[in-house]
């Protein structure tokens, strides 16, 4: 983990209530896709944990994609280029790309989609051919499809109302797919459904969300029980292996 100041390069709306923020700063503490940063905001006591969407280490560029769900994220949406943000970076364990096999499945639900982009890049760089299934409410909420496709994934979008892609849930879009491993990030109900839908013989990793105090393992605010004992979502997670989860 590192604490550092980042300069805001751009901050644009890319879907309904969803924004893409590009920051410039020392990204060297970020070592795996699926990690997150914790952002200090003026007037807010707790930092805001946001997953890393994309990374360009050579240019010190960090991309975050976030949804405005409360006062803190709305405050982020109003920030303009040149603003300076205090970030804790390189938090959490992240996804393990070495276990993916040749044809990994990436499942992102809503704002669980952003970490799939960097994960996709890292998997493709290792020679894997990922399939990305992303799920949203309707067409105006869909984001990152082009980016995932450009990064080398076969992309399948699902929307609840059928206004884009497959009508239904990500698990509907998963029907008939064959894959060597799966990575999932999204609401807990979605994670549970993905776990139930995946064949027992296929291993996977799922990224969880919980209200956090510190984000680096000190306060025990975000603990969960696993088959291998209590784990802190912020430090030992947010990514847990399929076999250790107690649903």
């Amino acid at each position: 983990m590192k604490q550092g100041l980042f300069e805001l390069i751009s901050n644009e709306k890319i879907a309904k209530d969803v924004y893409r923020m590009v920051l410039c700063g020392d990204v060297s503490a970020i070592t795996a896709p699926g990690q997150f940063v914790n952002i200090k905001l003026e007037g807010r006591f707790l930092r805001r944990p946001i997953s890393v969407c994309d990374l360009d280490g050579s240019a010190d560029r960090l991309t975050l994609v976030y949804k405005t769900v409360g006062g803190g994220t709305r405050q982020m949406a109003e920030m303009t280029p040149g603003a300076v943000l205090d970030l804790l970076s390189g938090l959490g364990n992240g996804f393990d790309v070495e276990r993916s096999g040749a044809r990994p499945l990436l499942v992102g639900g809503g704002v669980g989609t952003p970490p799939m982009l960097l994960l996709c890049r890292r998997l493709v760089a290792r020679g894997a051919r990922p399939i990305a299934v992303t799920g949203f409410g309707s067409a105006d909420e869909v984001f990152l499809s082009d980016e995932l496709r450009d990064a080398g994934a076969e992309v399948i979008v699902a929307t609840m109302d059928g206004s884009a892609g497959v009508k239904g849930l990500v698990t509907d879009a998963m029907t008939g797919l064959e894959y060597t491993y799966f990575y999932a990030c999204g609401p807990e109900a979605m994670l549970r459904a993905v776990d139930a839908a995946a064949p027992e013989s296929v291993a996977g990793e799922l990224s969880f969300e919980e209200r956090m105090g510190c984000g680096f393992g000190a306060c025990m605010g975000c603990s969960c029980e696993t088959k291998y004992g209590a784990k802190r979502i912020c430090k030992d997670g947010p990514v847990l292996r399929r076999e250790e989860i107690i649903w």
């Binding site: 006591f45 707790l46 919980e210 209200r211 105090g213 306060c219 605010g221 975000c222 969960c224």
Partner: peptide, 14 residues
């Protein structure tokens, strides 16, 4: 059980 944390004005609950 979680959630165990909430934000307040100038502080937090745990």
């Amino acid at each position: 059980p979680t959630p165990r944390i909430a934000e307040t004005s100038g502080g937090m609950l745990n």
